[in-house]
Every structure is written in C-alpha cells, then in structure tokens.
Write a protein that binds this DNA or RNA. Structure first.
Lengths: 151, 151
DNA sequence: CCTAGATATTTAACATGTTCAGGAGTTCGT
DNA sequence: ACGAACTCCTGAACATGTTAAATATCTAGG
C-alpha cells in the first residue's frame, strides 16, 4: 500500500499534467528549430518581434514572451551576437533599449515559420479545432485564477 | 485559415498557454517549498519516493517524475548530500542503484505535505473539482496524442 | 573465456529558470 | 538644484532542461 496514504496521486497532479502536455506539444517543434540553431525561447523572441510593427522595449518583450528579465537579457545578447536583432537606445529614456529584427532575423523567421505553422496545424487537426480552442480557454481561465491572491 | 505570410497570434499558442497555466499553478507551491530549501523538481522526487513501497531505480524514478536522466542524476546527488535519500547498489545488476527516502527525508515530506495539499485544494476549490478533472483529462489526451508519430 | 554490442548512470557543455543584488538613468519632493 | 526613491536592465549564483559523449556493467556470440 502507499506509505502515507493521504497524498494526492501525484502522477495526475495539475502541474505534472501541464508539463507532460507541453512536452508532447513541444517535441514537435524542437527538432525544427534545432535545424536553425534556435531554442524554443529564442524562437519566442523572434516571433514576438515579428508580431510587432517597430522596435520594442525589453520589458514589453518579456511580457509577451513570458520570459523573466534575466533570461531575456541573455537571449538578447545571444541573438545580437548572431546578428539576428538590432539594439538601440531610446532617446527619451536612456535606461531603455529598443529591439528589432535585423534583415537576417527577418529572413530567418520567414524560413522557419512555414514548418512551425505546419507542426501546429497538425496538432490542431489531430486534437480538433473546437476542442483545442476550448482547452485554450480553460488554460487561460486557470492562469487568470490566481491573480487576486489574498492569503 | 490564416493566409500566406501571417502567423498565428502567438500569445494564444498552445505551448504558451500551457506555460502560463503552469506558472499560475506553481507560483502557489514554490514559496512553500522554498521555506524548506526545496525546488519543485526535488519535491517531485521526494513525493515519488513516498508513493512507492520499497527502493526504486533511477530510471523508473525518472519516468514517474518526468525528469530527464541527467537532471535526475544531479538532483539525487544533491538530495543524498543533504541526507534526504539513501542510495544502494542493486545486487543482481551492479549498474543499477536503488533509491529510497531516509528517515530525515520521510520526516521532511510529512512536514511539507500538508501545506502542499492545502495549496492544491485551494486551486481545486476555486476552479471547480469537476472542471479541473475535465481539464486533466484533456491534458492527458493531448499528451497521448503524439506518441504514434508517422511523418 | 573473451569480446562486440547493449544498457544504466554519470559528465560535459551550453541555454534557460529563478532569486537576489548592483549600476545607471529618472522622477519627485523640497 | 539636490538627493531619496524608483525603474530598467544586467550580473551573479545556483538548479534544471537538453543533447551528446563517457563510464561502468551486463549480455550474447564465437
């Protein structure tokens, strides 16, 4: 019998379930990105830069990519070294920098995007569009749940 | 269908949604565990060891905790240094080791478990038991989806 | 026996997650 | 002006994610 008897089944805890589901989805993308020497997080940054019109500040970028500031800082340094992004300093506030895709970065995104879209479409197709949309709604609701925390 | 050139909205992509939901759930647990100098992954290992009767091999432990072998290897070294687990070598196969909780480890689990359960119950209560169960089922289905991959 | 191949675990190397601390620029009160 | 408090970003330190390679052990053929 299970030793302590009173704990939750564990394998079916929510954090584990989210982790497994995410891994199942990501294992489709990682090999695609690896062909271009890109990590999942680097790709998130490049996509976010593609989705914006002009330059964007690191703080806003961190929000959209759901990366913590220190992680983003390292990622931007990496992408800058590889010539995929361009950095400049905001004129009105010298603390802030402005990030945008370089020409090479734009080209890379255009190269990778189709297969990335295809992988996503395949998941959507296998799981069902309506079903996936409902799942996304539920995940969004769960993420919103804990914002008003009053211990 | 999104036409040529335009990409999926990104902020509402499945991997991002799973990441956000997981973070929303985990931010409840991390502070609790931090009080005992435990990371989320270390806690997963301790819980898995509690859920088994006798000693267990690292490979089986990796499966249950959803950790990769190299990560688990480092975690076990850490937990052993802290005297929370005991390691022995399997008699029938010298390659394999056997892991089990030490007395201190068992005590620590009993100390942390109640508040961990409480945090989980709170999520369950706010989100709804039935609703959460359905979400877990869908996540499980999604995780199973990609196993039979035939490109 | 002895060795080629398979398996369990660890190491290595690089990138990110997470928390805390620090340097630089800004804003506001006085 | 001036400095306290704040904000943006980066650096440091430790732990994990991820892939590839190394180590030790086992198993099967010859």
């Amino acid at each position: 019998m299970t030793g302590s008897g009173s704990m939750r089944p564990f394998e079916q805890s929510l954090p584990m379930a989210l982790l497994r589901a995410r891994e199942a989805a990501m294992c489709r993308f990682r090999p695609l990105l690896a062909e271009h020497e890109l990590t999942e997080q680097q790709w998130r940054v490049l996509r976010a830069l593609t989705a914006t019109d002009g330059p964007i500040e690191p703080t806003a970028l961190a929000d959209r990519t759901f990366l913590l500031a220190p992680s983003l800082s390292r990622i931007l340094a990496n992408l800058e070294d590889r010539g995929l992004i361009v950095r400049s300093v905001a004129t009105h506030d010298q603390r802030r920098s402005l990030i945008e895709l370089s020409m090479r970065g734009r080209t890379l995104v255009r190269t990778v995007a189709p297969s990335s879209e295809a992988a996503y479409n395949r998941i959507e197709e296998r799981f069902g569009v309506r079903r996936l949309q409902h799942l996304l709604d539920e995940l969004h609701a769960l993420a919103q749940l804990d914002l008003g925390e009053h211990p």
